[in-house]
């Protein structure tokens, strides 16, 4: 995330010269209140969640627990049902990402490097289908999954999770492949490299950051997918996020808080890993017109 460069010129140009002091103070106060309210709104719920995960006695309306404990962590980490969900999630998600890569990366290469009939249609269709309200797409899938006997099966869950990854795994690497300068490719050919060598030694390394971002976003989309997995997989395949639905209703709040913190770890770690690429890509690649 870029920090403000704070050009002095702008500051000086915008500094009001003749406003009464009371107005300046009032404006500053309103700004400060809005700023604090926004910070409170965004961050305090997360701090509260972490606090709950370590809370022993927590008597309403106390703002902090009167005692802290790691007992809930022991309980969660030794619960066989929850561990099963963890195993399911960490097994299914890589499968989904791998299948998505097999399906989409060749397409991303073709879409990024070639101009063929129907290319725009493909890109816009993938985008449009993904822009459908997700829950109604899942509801619409049910009759077909029943007909194919895929409801309550791991294949059904994989298909549902795969749908959410297609857009990332196609569009982002396609942009990566498209951004490779033609001059580099031509130079490699002129130096006598074969088509495969050019792909393997020139294009793939240059497209790797975009593929990594796509893989991470796809991983998280699949790992965190709850609503479709809940509809298609329950009650046989309760992945970690699906398990949260029942934890919220049936377990002590500290128990669910611990599980929530555990479930957030992969997201936070992976997003931090690709943060630079993700935000840099957002800033430079996005030209909407």
């Amino acid at each position: 995330m870029s920090v403000a460069s704070a050009p002095l010129r702008e500051e000086a140009a915008f500094r009001p010269a003749t406003r009464p002091v009371i107005l300046v103070v009032a404006a500053r106060s309103i700004q400060a209140v809005l700023f604090l309210a926004a910070v409170f709104f965004i961050t305090v719920p997360l701090a509260w969640l972490v606090l709950l995960a370590f809370a022993g006695n927590f008597n309403f309306p106390s703002l902090v627990p009167t005692s802290f404990t790691v007992q809930w962590w022991h309980t969660v980490l030794s619960s066989p049902g929850l561990l099963h969900s963890v195993v399911l999630s960490v097994t299914i998600t890589p499968v989904v990402v791998a299948l998505s890569a097999v399906l989409c990366l060749p397409a991303a290469y073709a879409l990024g490097r070639f101009n063929f009939l129907g290319k725009r249609v493909v890109l816009l269709s993938i985008f449009s289908i993904n822009a459908f309200p997700r829950i109604s797409l899942y509801i619409a899938m049910i009759p077909m999954l029943f007909a194919l006997n895929l409801m309550g099966t791991v294949v059904g869950v994989v298909i549902v999770q795969l749908i959410g990854t297609i857009l990332f795994m196609t569009w982002i690497p396609a942009t990566g492949f498209a951004a490779i300068p033609d001059a580099l490719v031509d130079a490699a050919h002129d130096a006598g490299a074969s088509k495969f060598q050019v792909f393997w030694r020139v294009m793939l390394p240059l497209a790797r950051p975009s593929i990594a971002v796509a893989a991470v976003l796809s991983f998280l989309a699949a790992f965190d997918e709850a609503q479709g997995t809940f509809l298609v997989g329950a009650p046989n395949y309760l992945t970690m996020p699906v398990r949260m639905y029942s934890l919220v209703l049936d377990y002590p709040v500290q128990f669910a808080a611990v599980f929530a913190v555990v479930l957030s770890i992969p997201s936070v770690v992976l997003m931090l890993l690709v943060r630079k690429h993700l935000f840099a890509g957002t800033g430079s690649a996005m030209q909407l017109r």
Binding site: L111, G112, R113, F114, N115, K119, R120, L123, L124, F127, N130, A131, R134, G164, L167, F168, W171, I172, A174, T175, A178, A179, D182, V213, L217, L220, A221, D224, E225, A226, Q227, S267, M271, L278, G281, T282, A285, M286, Q287, L288, R289
Partner: peptide
């Protein structure tokens, strides 16, 4: 990650570089 914002993120990240590319 916000499931609901999937499509938006791709629009963000991909932009129109792909569609406008004319090699």
């Amino acid at each position: 990650m916000a499931l609901s914002s999937g499509p938006l993120s791709a629009e963000l990240t991909a932009g129109v570089a792909v569609t406008d590319r004319d090699p």
